[in-house]
Simulated assay, not measured.
Amino acid sequence: MKRKRLKYPFFVIIGPSGSGKTSVAEAVFPAEFKVISHTTRPIRKEEKDGIDYYFETKEQFKKLVDTDALAENDQYHGYQYGVGIEELIRKTTSHFAYDVLTIDGFQQIERQFGNKVIPIFFKVSKKNILARLQTREDDNETVKERSALYDVEAQNIEKVITYPNHCIINADQPFETVIDELKSVIMARNLLLD
């Protein structure tokens, strides 16, 4: 099936769990610029369906996969995630858009939509990851699992740098500095691809 082209860039934020990528992205991008992913993960008390994610049953998610409605789908921590093609195209019709995805999710979308899909990797030290995870997670088992993932997720930088429009952001810097750096990257890449 032939995919439509994206009119404006789609920025994909990638990085190890605990790198601050979601918090920084939410501070930089307007809420309406987020491409909302589908997931089978249970909704958390502070989340809203249709704003944070489209929360799906396993059966609903399977139907999305079976009908080729997703530009990508991936599994993370035992739950399915996926970006809808219609949502992606609609969100990039009048302005750029973004989402926080895995490297595999980025690669699936980039294969379909090409250089308008721009990877931005948040590089961060393991020391800072552990400190952040211990601050935000109550469950020691979750901290252990996510810190074990760090070594694998941090190596994804090697994949990201093979894409011509990639960008690496040093997420060990203070939060406001990382925000400013991401704003600069978005502005520069958006102008180049307009």
Rank of each mutant, 00 (worst) to 15 (best):
N73I: 10
N73L: 11
N73K: 12
D74T: 15
D74N: 15
Q75N: 09
Q75Y: 06
Y76I: 04
Y76L: 15
Y76P: 12
H77Y: 12
H77K: 15
G78E: 02
Y79C: 06
Y79V: 06
Y81N: 10
Y81C: 09
Y81G: 09
G82W: 07
G82M: 15
G82K: 14
V83W: 00
V83P: 02
I85W: 03
E86R: 06
E87R: 14
L88E: 01
I89V: 07
R90C: 02
K91C: 01
K91M: 02
T92L: 04
T92V: 05
T93F: 08
S94F: 05
S94T: 14
H95F: 05
F96V: 00
F96M: 01
F96N: 00
Y98I: 06
D99Y: 08
V100C: 15
V100F: 13
V100L: 12
L101R: 12
L101Q: 10
T102G: 00
T102F: 02
T102I: 05
I103D: 11
I103S: 13
I103R: 13
D104S: 15
D104R: 14
G105K: 11
F106H: 10
Q107Y: 00
Q108Y: 01
Q108K: 14
Q108E: 09
I109C: 09
E110C: 07
E110D: 08
E110V: 02
R111D: 01
Q112W: 00
F113A: 06
F113T: 00
F113N: 03
N115P: 03
K116Q: 15
V117H: 07
V117S: 07
I118R: 10
I118Y: 12
I118H: 10
I118S: 13
F122A: 08
F122E: 08
K123Y: 12
K123P: 14
S125W: 02
S125C: 13
S125D: 11
K126Y: 13
K126W: 12
K126E: 05
K127N: 11
K127Q: 12
I129L: 10
I129R: 14
I129E: 07
L130Y: 02
R132S: 04
L133C: 10
L133I: 09
L133N: 11
L133T: 12
Q134D: 10
